[in-house]
């Protein structure tokens, strides 16, 4: 087995495209779920709206990248309002149900053959990334050091992605140390108590939903540009659940929780993938037990087991405070 390539692939995945995308989606969720306690099970829809907003405006409407970004952000705000206006006055579960349904509606709408002219149907859209890569100041070649050597295209998108991710983390840190963030955390604990202290709970929940959704849309921009394609089935419910996993692994309501969670999540996926594939190739695992095509499924099973272990032995996540979990048991 080639441990060198296994390790180097794993290290690459720590800073890779998926890590950035899922960390960003999880930063959005962190604002909504981690701090405000909003059960948004439709983060995939916000990511999809961002990605498609950009792709449709640039490719089908022939407008500039900036218009695409504005439409993606605007779309996320509109989606948050659509979901929030009817449900945020109700109990928390209603938002969960509405968001999970809305995410599927969004995905199926982008996938439908009726809208093919505007969304590309199940094939999605490609060829909208030219303007973004034209902005790339890097010339052809590879950049980086050690295991982290990437092409100029990937370096550019990773650079933009990580800068945005850090900016969002700073934004979350600034917001959550402020009295505004305190109200949000209060709402997570008990919204009636916060209401009785004269805070407009509904407005705060709406703000949190919008901010988290817009950060999700940015994850969509990076997803679309990094892959140079949008494809409806990438924005299924598993995207949302991966983002939740990332958030819980890192520790909810911790500024860097999503970033560390995403790095660990994709590190473990890369490790299990490469180790299993190589073990099969080298004959350590008999093909009667597992063939190379099954590696993809088995690695998720292993990740599932790891997550269970984490939740049993460290339920607060990597950064969480054990005392907080103890309080929940009361």
């Amino acid at each position: 087995m080639d441990w060198g390539s296994i390790i180097s692939n794993a290290l690459r995945s720590v800073v890779g495209l998926e890590t950035v995308i899922f960390a960003m989606a999880a930063v959005g969720l962190n604002v909504q779920f981690g701090y405000a306690g909003l059960l948004n099970f439709g983060q995939a829809a916000f990511v999809a709206i961002g990605a498609y907003g950009l792709a449709i405006m640039v490719f089908f409407a022939g407008l500039s990248l900036w218009v695409g970004l504005a439409v993606g952000i605007g779309g996320a705000v509109v989606l948050a309002l659509l979901l929030g206006v009817p449900t945020l006055r109700l109990r928390a579960d209603y938002l969960a149900i509405a968001t999970i349904a809305a995410a599927e509606i969004v995905r199926i709408a982008f996938r439908s053959s009726t809208l093919r002219e505007w969304t590309g149907g199940s094939n999605g859209i490609t060829g909208f990334d030219g303007q973004f890569y034209a902005l790339n100041p890097l010339s052809n070649g590879t950049y980086g050091f050690g295991p982290w050597r990437f092409s100029e295209r990937l370096t550019w998108v990773l650079l933009v992605g990580w800068v945005l991710l850090i900016l969002f983390c700073v934004l979350v840190w600034l917001l959550m140390r402020s009295p505004w963030g305190r109200v949000l955390k209060g709402i997570r604990e008990d919204e009636d108590a916060v209401r009785s202290l004269g805070k407009n709970v509904y407005a705060y929940k709406m703000q949190a939903l919008i901010i988290g959704g817009v950060i999700g849309a940015f994850a969509g921009f990076i997803y679309a540009l990094g892959r140079a394609a949008v494809q409806p089935d990438l924005y299924g419910t598993e995207l949302t659940f991966f983002a939740y996993t990332v958030l819980l692994v890192g520790g909810a309501a911790r500024v860097f929780g999503p970033v560390v969670g995403a790095a660990i999540f994709w590190l473990v996926l890369s490790l299990t993938d490469n180790v299993l594939a190589q073990a099969i190739n080298a004959g350590y695992v008999s093909s009667s037990i597992m063939n190379p095509n099954q590696v993809g499924q088995v690695r998720f099973m292993l990740v599932g087991v790891l997550l269970m272990l984490l939740m049993i032995y460290r339920p607060q996540g990597i950064f969480g405070d054990k005392r907080e979990i103890a309080l929940n048991a009361r």
Binding site: L174, L175, S178, W180, Q207
Partner: peptide, 9 residues
């Protein structure tokens, strides 16, 4: 004042 989103930052 800090409970307004715009001032919070």
């Amino acid at each position: 004042r800090g409970e307004r989103l715009m001032n919070a930052l």
